[in-house]
Design a protein around this nucleic acid. Structure first.
Lengths: 219, 219
DNA sequence: ATGTTCTATGAAAACTTGTTCACTGTCAAG
DNA sequence: CTTGACAGTGAACAAGTTTTCATAGAACAT
């Protein structure tokens, strides 16, 4: 897979976000307006590049018609959790900002390839629950087994302010881990749901990327 | 919610299937070709009707741009499981027949309204696993708690030939229930994963609607 | 130096697509 | 027995959209 440039990545992300929010693709003019291009051809070129690099498939001549080609991840090390949300551009995942009839991005994984991709789910317009920029973690390791989150499960994480006891995706040493957040008075630390793992007491700062809201398991 | 006519339902279903398969909406002329209309206006009228009845939202002037308005179910009785897959046309759910870069329809539920809707998930083209007409069950009741499937969970069911020990969605007395399939010699019966429930031995025939493959839980 | 890629403008062409108009007919409800 | 919803034909229009052409600077590798 060829690397995408920043602009190409931004455009691809915008297109995905547009689909997630509106349930249909943006036109070239929509993208042009978003990025303040003076010419539609600027967009056109980027789309061609995206197609050439294999991440987007265009349907020639058809309006607002594309397919996303899932991006494949390389093998990772023995990281406990592989972060696959916004911020890591190995996977561009749906960010879903919306409230009307579409919301919430969810992932699926295919056990063989370890590929994670986005999906869109239309929600009821009556449900005003928004999940802006939800993302997914595929869990690796056993640090949360006491919370019934096991290796291979997929966790859906939503941004927000975590409360005491929430299971959070936290950024520590450049890696994302899934832990339970403990607030005791002025002390804040992270606790694994497995007695074999020690508590993680943040040295300087603690970056919470989101709160784990649901978990999807193979039966 | 006004009732849809057969043709309207067919067109709406086709549109959904098209999105699920191609990831973009069909044009009016695509629909026209599918249904062998001689005039685009036939389609146009149907789309207007669908919008008037509140199940589809058009974006005037924009090409291949629609939104699906989720259809709401009425209240059901105390059925153990509410079936919301193909066959029940109270909900038109994505049937996804495809193999290329899009597959598998999944639902989400909103706890307040009981609305179930479809979503689309693009799979990796390298993963040849197909899930034609997958659907979802929202579990009600506790008949499967020993298999860690609890009230409120959502189960993803895929069609297929079940093996001994699979958890299946079975049609019994016109209702769908979730049970484990037991094959003992020539005997076949269904077993609840809760000792308080008796085994279900089918009298005449047993209709298996699919195999539960994964379960999604709120944390 | 030279070629390639990325970036972008500006205009126009060509095609796709939604929309409208005029017209016909069936069927059920009031 | 009129009204309205439903279903459809056929043609044409207007707008939306993609695509092509011509042009060019910046960054970067060979």
């Amino acid at each position: 897979m060829e690397e995408l440039t920043k602009k190409q990545r931004a455009i691809l992300d915008y297109m995905k976000a547009h689909v997630a929010e509106h349930s249909y693709w943006p036109s070239i003019r929509d993208i042009q307006a978003k990025f303040r291009f003076a010419s539609t051809n600027a967009v056109f070129g980027h789309l061609q590049a995206l197609e050439r690099k294999g991440v987007l498939q265009r349907i020639p001549g058809a309006a607002r018609a594309y397919k996303i080609v899932p991006e494949v991840l390389g093998d990772t090390s023995e990281t406990v959790i592989r972060y696959e949300g916004p911020g890591d551009d190995a996977i561009a995942f749906e960010s879903v900002k919306f409230a009307g009839s579409i919301a919430a991005g969810f992932p699926d994984y295919t056990e063989s390839s370890g590929v994670l991709d986005s999906m869109q789910v239309p929600l009821s317009p009556s449900s005003r629950r928004r999940a802006p920029e939800s993302f997914a973690l595929r869990v690796r390791g056993d640090s949360m087994i006491d919370a019934d989150i096991n290796d291979g499960d997929t966790v859906i994480v939503e941004p927000g302010v975590p409360k005491h006891g929430d299971i959070v995706a936290a950024l520590i040493d450049g890696e994302t881990t899934l832990k339970r957040l403990i607030k005791q008075g002025s002390k804040v630390y992270l606790k694994a749901e497995n007695q074999n793992y020690p508590d993680l007491i943040p040295s300087t700062s603690l970056t919470i990327q989101g709160i784990a809201k649901s978990v999807m398991k193979r039966i």
